[in-house]
Nucleic acid binder design. Structure first.
Lengths: 292, 292
DNA sequence: ATTCTGTCTTTTATCTACAATAGACAGATC
DNA sequence: GATCTGTCTATTGTAGATAAAAGACAGAAT
């Protein structure tokens, strides 16, 4: 295989959902816009729809013939990009599978295990290396540095510097800046989840990422915003594998976020700094607790 | 070609220099250690030496037969790793060759121009992307964000946060920490160069990198240390292409470094912070001046 | 008993090839 | 006149192959 057609399959599934709600599809360029793919892919999707008698396609007319059935969709496993698959496998390996620091990482072995070519694994490792968890010995293997206490401390140190600075910028954003509007939306979501915490506490993880990213973006500094990727991925997988007291922890974090949001709204740098510090402190403790 | 044998050629040249100073070479493992290559490569070098009648090789005996001639060496162009070559070509292109922000970068074109395969170019771009100068559109081209004023400001903002923090750590390093010794060496080099500034001012660039890296390392934070790569590469190429007033600028920076070093030595955090700020301020100005 | 060499195996770095996807352009349609 | 479609070309993403380099192990030399 040269290239997986995951872009096609994923767009196909999304287009199928669009099709369920309408009696005819819009123009090719418009579909491309909505789905975020090129016209070439759109046309491939339409051709398939036609073959399966889902639509009658004649130039500008794309009339829906029947409702999609569950088995018209591609299985979701097939719509994930190769990079995502590699990332997940790799993270599972190094987080779950008792990966000791200092261990060697073998490109070929990883590729075979994941069922992919070495090129993709290699490119993944290069991209991943900026997270500071692995390191390359040129002409030789990669070394796993491991998700250790030091790693967590170094990560949080930088995170705290960056977020404090971003929060300080946030309070001085002009009132008509779109960030305020998004902050309102995020706050509302916090309240919704808190009101039904027993059932919805798992939604916190995603919301947490959204909120902190919004704060970091206020820095208008690409290095600060990019660094948030590292934090996001660490916390993302961290949440997945450390579920002890999740409900309670998340409830507490939600409350802290609300205090933090209020402080940002006050436009008072002092208050914002305090609320930010308080939350970062407890986030750090949570992270450290999960490391042996 | 599968792999360039630059490791071999470079080690070969260095081994040839060793050979000039001795009448017999040490054991294979020892040579490997000295040259930083595996025994496989060492043996390849020795075989070649034997072929060219440079040594008589019989098991443990490796007696030098004749002095190397200039044409025994491989040309230096052939000893650079592919990654270095790509980096240089790319930087020349984007810094020298009027590269406008927003320009598209084409992997295949770049590869052809440099005379290499697309894989290597691609891997380079992935690695390079962490410097924030280019950005990838998946399934499509890379975009050059350009060495703009914003870039320089964002870079220096983070640099200043990191270096101030590192300097604060530096002053509290214990007296027996090896960093102090290295600081002494670096200081001596500063004085040497200053004493002969008219002729040696170009050596500043390398020294600058050494000094700031030493400071950053005091942070014991991999993210801070890794970030210094970005600063180093930017300043490295910056020095190469902006030569106006180089002598004067470098002399001033050397003086500032000396004050900064003295402040670090004082173990006084206040003094260190002041000296650090002063120097970073003028470093920032210098960088900004060179951007249109 | 340690260190070295000869030989063999494994792994990385890089090239080439090709399908998936993006993108460009002219003529058709509204 | 603007937008859309048909067709064609260019570029990316990935696999597979191969030489360079690393590394392992047993037997030889000190």
């Amino acid at each position: 295989m040269a290239k997986q057609n995951t872009v096609f399959k994923d767009a196909y599934n999304r287009c199928l959902r669009l099709l369920a709600d309408t009696s005819s599809l819009p123009s090719e360029p418009e579909l491309g816009q909505v789905l975020g793919v090129s016209r070439t892919t759109v046309r491939a999707i339409l051709s398939r729809f036609e073959e399966l008698q889902l639509i009658a396609w004649d130039k500008r007319k794309k009339n829906v013939l029947r409702q999609p059935r569950p088995d018209d969709y591609f299985p979701t496993e097939e719509t994930d990009s190769l990079a995502d698959i590699i990332e997940r496998s790799f993270m599972r390996r190094i987080l779950a599978g008792g990966a000791e620091p200092g261990m060697q990482i073998n490109e070929l072995e990883l590729a075979r295990e994941i069922g992919t070519g070495t090129t993709s694994v290699r490119e993944f490792l290069i991209r991943f290396s900026r997270f500071g968890l692995i390191e390359k010995r040129p002409n030789s293997h990669w070394i796993l540095k491991g998700f250790t206490r030091e790693f967590a401390l170094e990560l949080t140190e930088v995170r705290e510097m960056f977020e404090l600075r971003s929060a300080a910028r946030f309070v001085s954003l002009p009132d008509d800046h779109p960030a305020w509007e998004e902050l309102t939306k995020i706050e509302a979501l916090h309240r919704e989840i808190l009101a039904d915490i027993d059932r919805r506490y798992q939604e916190f993880s995603e919301l947490d990422e959204q909120f902190h990213l919004l704060v970091h973006k206020a820095s208008s500094n690409r290095f600060i915003v990019d660094f948030y990727d590292i934090i996001a991925i660490v916390f993302h997988y961290h949440y997945q594998w450390n579920k002890t007291n999740a409900r309670q922890r998340n409830a507490r974090a939600l409350e802290e976020h609300l205090a933090y949001i209020e402080a940002l709204r006050s436009h008072d740098p002092e208050k914002a700094e305090q609320a930010c510090r308080r939350h970062l402190q407890s986030a750090r403790e949570t992270l450290l607790q999960s490391i042996p």
